[in-house]
Amino acid sequence: MKDFLLIFRNDPGLMPQESPEEMQARMKKWMDWIGNFAAQNKLIDRGNRLHTAGSVVKPGNIVTDGPYTEVKELIGGYTLVKAESLEEATEMAKNCPILLVGGNVEVREINPM
């Protein structure tokens, strides 16, 4: 088994205004999706969502501040899973709820130090 990082990206501008019920329904999809990996004993770390606020540090003491709400592909969260291969990990990412709101998942194999 290898470890993979799933990186969720979406366009915050496309996120619809949600009622509490809609938000709960969306959270349920995430919980069930993560729960599927946990039930297969393939979840390493559920990971987390990320706030839109942040900063980027560049050489020469240049710091750019967020929020990055205007960025089209903002990293919104991440999860760590186990899989036999990149193909399997990619297959696992195909049901990710981020795809339902126009986002995408980047699947990267962890290269341990």
Binding site: K28, M31, D32, I34, G35, A38, A39, L43, R46
Partner: peptide
């Protein structure tokens, strides 16, 4: 949902 959390 409780099982989802328990398995984590």
């Amino acid at each position: 949902q409780l099982y989802n959390q328990l398995l984590q």
